[in-house]
Design a protein around this nucleic acid. Structure first.
Lengths: 210, 210, 210, 210
DNA sequence: GATGAATGAGTATTCATTCAT
DNA sequence: AATGAATGAATACTCATTCAT
């Protein structure tokens, strides 16, 4: 009310540039999802972003670099959110695990996440940098959180003592599959993700019982 | 004299043709695995198969058609083997399930299966026919077998009564993930598939206990 | 009469291929001369050669490689011809020198030679390989021949004793300039090359007198 | 008060503008020499000149126009210097010719002259204006001076009577070649320009003797 | 005036597909 | 039947030029 403060830090130009960079990334994500990396034409991306073709190269070095930035900028926020969410949780290990899985499902089924996941899997071999990033920044943290929760459950007698030896993939892979399933088999056998998630969580909790 | 039989002669031709078709499919699989569908050049396939480039078009309509035939011809034998293997089994539902999963792991980790699986996932959206085929001929039969076994376990009191309501994906997705994992993350966190499989089976059996 | 011999060495295909390669080189020379290396579009070259654009790449690796082959294939015959011509000459050193210079002028003013010379000078810095080739295969042999002739003249008392110390460029550069002059200044001051050559030769002979 | 003179103020502006124009021309010359006309990016020129890319267009209409101004502004001073130098000379025709050639070599081997010469030759056909300018303002005056000197030598009995009929190119082309030689063949056969010049002058004087 | 972000026309190169031999 | 030479559509990337700030 008193004063509209013009923060000098963010000049008009700067804001414009960041907005445009963001617009390109969004457009590229759409295009990559719709057609895959190789089949995506930068002409397309430019058109979707409402800019000229050459402009893309003012913000990204190459198509490959653009792809990496798309992945990075879409996964970073998710990872950060996930990591901060559980820190404050108090309650039983079971309820903690329940919340963790709900978070995972939430994140992996955000509007364009399944497609993004599939793309990472698809193009991963072509982009070692992406693979490394995905493993280190997404998978590893997730596995760490899971282990922490399980250990807490074991210590409190809620989970069976040998639960710590389980491969984390055994517990989490259904979530990944659930995320991708409807992309592939929506027409043949659509999956009710809400029920699927509940069943998955119940299944895991059952399996962890002493 | 009159009875000059040329059936075997024709048979020779037929056999030659079938052998060549098979050689092209093998060469194509190698190439597709090594470089992905789009990046694969038919020049490459021809060279690997030891034939001229034009010859491919005597056996397949297009690169896409070739891809479909590659998938089809590699998955058919596996599906057939899997289906016949369990029919004769006698024993407890648990041992039946154990054998089923061992078969699944065996099949999904045959020499080029993981790459093939990943390719189906990667290129699936581009090839609806492949997706349909994969669902109908591989996934559905596998789920049917699983349900049969579980029902047998429930009926015999080996498994908990509500086991039939579990999504089959909850039980089998770790096998799929295990197959692909080492393609993607071999460098970062290689997976000991033998131990992984045993742990997976034990985990499932534990979860199905009444 | 008895038999039209089919030399198996040169199959129809082989001949066709060589003819086409030659046609591309000719078309490329025309285009390079008309527009310079960078400004020449391979579309143009293909059209001039009456072939498809992609065909060029069946014969040459790249535009640069094509350029090098154009230079090479146009200069080799000239060098070879020049080298063999003088070997058999008998007569005074003066008449030998006269014939040598006439040969040089002849070669450097063949239909497309002046343009080719200018191109080599123009693009030389961009193509070290061309420069090296040009120096080693054209300039050096030419200088060697010149020195041989002059030495013969000195030995026979026809030329002044210190003629051997002259830089060969002093004697030959007018021929190079004469070749290029009309490309550049035809409109402003056309050069009568026949008279120019005669004057040049007389001038050199005069300068070499004892 | 009334007599607030703003002429010097405007002068300052003028001087600034001229300095900037000059800076751009210098930067462009460097760039053109280093990379040739087409390969030179105006981004580069702007950076070398320490200005923004758009600023170039405040001083020059186009890249081509800039090139012409580069040539013009670098050759004008040389032409002017050359023309005034010989007017006052007194002495023998031989010493006059000697000084003339020394001047020519001096001019043609100023820091960036050889590159500039080569560029004029290279890009000449693309820039008729440049060619005309070069012929009229540089070559013609040079030939005129040469003819004057030779005539003086003939009149004084120093040179042979028919020296006036010599093509001037026969006498001067070694200087042009000498200027360019080291650009092209420095690596293969570097030319000692001082000795080359002395030899050239002696050679010419010898050839002009009666 | 000066800037530099934005533009889009322009081009070398690749490769699935065809077809004459 | 088999070949591989020929094709030309398709596409990432560059850079002179413009113009809003």
């Amino acid at each position: 009310m008193i004063a509209t403060i013009d923060i000098p830090k963010a000049g008009k130009r700067e804001i414009q540039k960041e907005a445009r960079r963001s617009a390109i990334i969004d457009a590229a994500l759409e295009a990559f999802i719709a057609q895959g990396f190789i089949a995506t034409k930068l002409d397309d991306v430019a058109e979707r972003a409402g800019i000229g073709k050459g402009t893309i190269y003012l913000y990204f070095d190459s198509k490959e670099n653009l792809f990496e930035e798309v992945v990075r900028s879409n996964l970073f926020p998710i990872r950060d959110a996930a990591e901060t969410r559980l820190v404050t949780h108090t309650g039983s290990a079971a309820s903690l695990l329940d919340e963790h899985f709900r978070n995972v499902y939430l994140a992996m089924n955000l509007p364009r996440m399944p497609s993004l996941m599939q793309m990472i899997l698809s193009e991963g071999m072509r982009f070692p940098a992406i693979n490394r990033f995905f493993y280190n920044e997404i998978i590893l943290p997730s596995q760490r959180m899971l282990r922490t929760i399980i250990q807490r459950g074991i210590d409190g007698g809620e989970f069976r003592p040998d639960a710590g030896e389980l491969f984390p993939q055994l517990l989490t892979s259904p979530a990944l599959l659930g995320s991708i399933w409807n992309l592939q088999f929506r027409d043949h056998a659509p999956l009710d993700l809400e029920r699927y998630m509940q069943s998955h969580i119940a299944f895991v909790l059952h399996a962890l019982r002493p």
